[in-house]
Amino acid sequence: MSDTITYLTDATMITAVVPAGRADDLLKAARDVGASGGIVHQARGTGARELLGLLGIAVEAEREVVNIVVPTDYQELVTNAIVHAGGLGKPGGGYLYLTALEKVATYIPEASMARLQAGD
């Protein structure tokens, strides 16, 4: 079994684009409801600042992009936690989107693997 790849299916990637400095709050909220972790990218956004005219000074171009992969069955739970913790429902709070992942490959601990195979 060492050279077979085990794919995980039914996974969703939550991508949240938020003002710089908020990513840690989001990740903490996600972990609090059980998500395993995520990635933070530094990014620079365009558009909102220009679109808003002078109101745009309240929008920082510096953004953080957070990627979190969760089982599709629990995507709502984690999304809710992120939206509330990150203030994504407020003006200027950023946005998130969910992407269905076709498959995910990673190392699966032997104990988990044994449990999966027993379940088959």
């Binding site: 679109l51 808003l52 109101l55 000074i57 203030g87 407020k90 003006p91």
Partner: peptide, 19 residues
């Protein structure tokens, strides 16, 4: 076409509050 969004004063206040 992207229209410039219009905001109510309350929304503007919420946008500027953290700023």
């Amino acid at each position: 076409r992207t229209a410039r969004p219009s905001f109510t004063p309350r929304e503007i206040a919420r946008l500027f509050q953290p700023y």
